[in-house]
Amino acid sequence: MEDLILLETIEKYLSNQMDAQEKTAFELVRKNTPEIDQMVVEHAMFLQQMDQYSAVKSIKQTLAQTHQNLLERGEISNSIEVSRGAQVIQLFHKYKRVAAIAASVGGVIALFISGLALYISPVSHNSQIQQLSNDIAAIKKSQQYQGKLINEVKSKLPAGVKFISGGSGFLIDGKGFIVTNAHVIKGTGAIVVDNTGKEYVAEIALLDKVKDLAILTDNSYLLNKINKLEQQIINKLKNK
């Protein structure tokens, strides 16, 4: 109980709650009693520790509360995303030189390989291809020409006529009789072509297979032609 009263007195003294008279009395007791003096010093120290403890405790609370508030408002982050970003940046700074060297080596190799490929790959035969296309063009042209000729021949041949054989013959009189070899006549008629290239149809007048002779006749056109010839001869004779 005595200790409690003493403690209360010391605390009262330390917190300046004593009036001047009390204070003087107590300071005298302090001076004369080293034990009490020691207790005062000790208690002052303890109270200071308590104050410090109290202050740090409340600042810790404030800090924890602030952290919580900022976190809730999203003004600080609790994820490790920050670290990933920072780490990536740090790694970038650390290895950017290596990366640059690797990139340029890669670039040089790429260029070298593409150059090599270009060098080794077969050259295209441009001139030969040009010539080939020219040749094909020529062939096309000649084929077109041939086609035209064939069409011409087709149009000249009477429909349904089959060409079997051919030979030569001679006019033997003004009435349009033509003599030829019998073996060249096959079938029932013949097409005669004169010296100007004109064609007309002739009939078989006589056929002697033993003597190998045949006589063809054309009743209209040849006759006209022969008549013209006769007229020319007569005119010439008259002029003489």
């Binding site: 409340s58 602030t66 952290h67 508030n69 609790n78 670290s83």
Partner: peptide
């Protein structure tokens, strides 16, 4: 003086740097 507004300001201005430093050096949040 344990002024919460000022402590918040100090917190906001400095925490991210420290966080980045700790996280980049084997530490956690």
């Amino acid at each position: 003086s344990n002024d919460s507004a000022i402590i918040e300001q100090l917190y906001k201005e400095n925490f991210s740097t420290i966080q980045a430093f700790i996280l980049a050096n084997n530490g956690s949040y």
